[in-house]
Amino acid sequence: MPPNYRRCVSCRRSGPKASFWRVVRVFPSQTVQLDEGIGRSAYICPQAACLRISRRKNRLGRALKTAVPETIYEQLSERLVARAAER
């Protein structure tokens, strides 16, 4: 992959880093948050299908090697709704 390209944990599509949402397991607190922080990261496409598959198959949790709180999925769902409203 070219530099600054990432791969979606759900659909495995690769693309520029800016086209994905970043989910981070922060070091050393082991908390999971969106977009910011230093630690283990996973990327997901901003699409409802990718979010649904990731949630059902625990793809974010496996990529981050920790349990992803339900609030993270709710925040991502809210982002999808806000993005759809912009269009």
Rank of each mutant, 00 (worst) to 15 (best):
E74D: 08
Q30V: 14
P69W: 00
L76Y: 02
L34R: 03
A48K: 12
S54I: 10
A67N: 05
V26W: 04
Y73H: 15
P46I: 02
V32G: 03
Q30C: 13
V68H: 02
Y43F: 07
C50H: 07
T71I: 01
F20E: 00
R87N: 11
I44K: 10
I38H: 15
P28G: 11
Q75R: 14
R62D: 05
Q30K: 14
P28A: 08
A49E: 09
A85W: 11
L76A: 07
E36R: 14
R87W: 05
L76G: 02
E36V: 15
A42V: 13
C50G: 09
Q75W: 08
I38T: 13
D35M: 13
S29D: 12
S54N: 09
D35L: 12
Q33L: 05
R59F: 05
T31H: 15
Y73K: 12
Q47Y: 14
N58A: 11
S19K: 02
L64R: 02
S29F: 10
A85G: 11
A42W: 09
E74S: 07
S29I: 10
S19C: 03
G39R: 03
S54K: 13
K57M: 01
L76M: 04
P46C: 10
G39C: 00
E86R: 12
V68P: 00
R79F: 09
R62Y: 12
C45F: 06
A67L: 01
R55W: 05
S19I: 08
R87M: 07
W21A: 04
A42R: 11
R52L: 08
V24R: 12
S77Q: 11
A67W: 07
G39W: 04
L60S: 04
V24L: 13
V81P: 03
K57G: 06
W21L: 08
A67K: 07
A82P: 08
V32M: 03
L60P: 02
R25F: 15
R87Q: 09
V26T: 01
R62Q: 15
V68L: 03
Q33K: 04
L64K: 07
A63T: 08
S77N: 10
T31G: 12
V23S: 06
A49D: 15
F20M: 00
R22A: 00
V68D: 03
L51D: 00
W21E: 04
R22H: 04
C50W: 05
R22P: 06
L51C: 07
A67I: 06
L80G: 01
A42F: 15
G39F: 02
R59D: 01
N58C: 04
S29G: 07
I53Q: 15
Q33N: 04
R22F: 04
A82W: 10
R25I: 11
S77P: 07
E36P: 09
F27I: 09
N58F: 13
G39S: 03
S77F: 06
L34K: 05
R40F: 01
V24M: 11
G61Y: 04
R55F: 13
V68K: 02
L34G: 12
L76I: 04
E36W: 11
I44Q: 08
Q33V: 05
A42M: 11
Q30I: 13
V24A: 14
R83F: 13
A42Y: 14
Q33R: 06
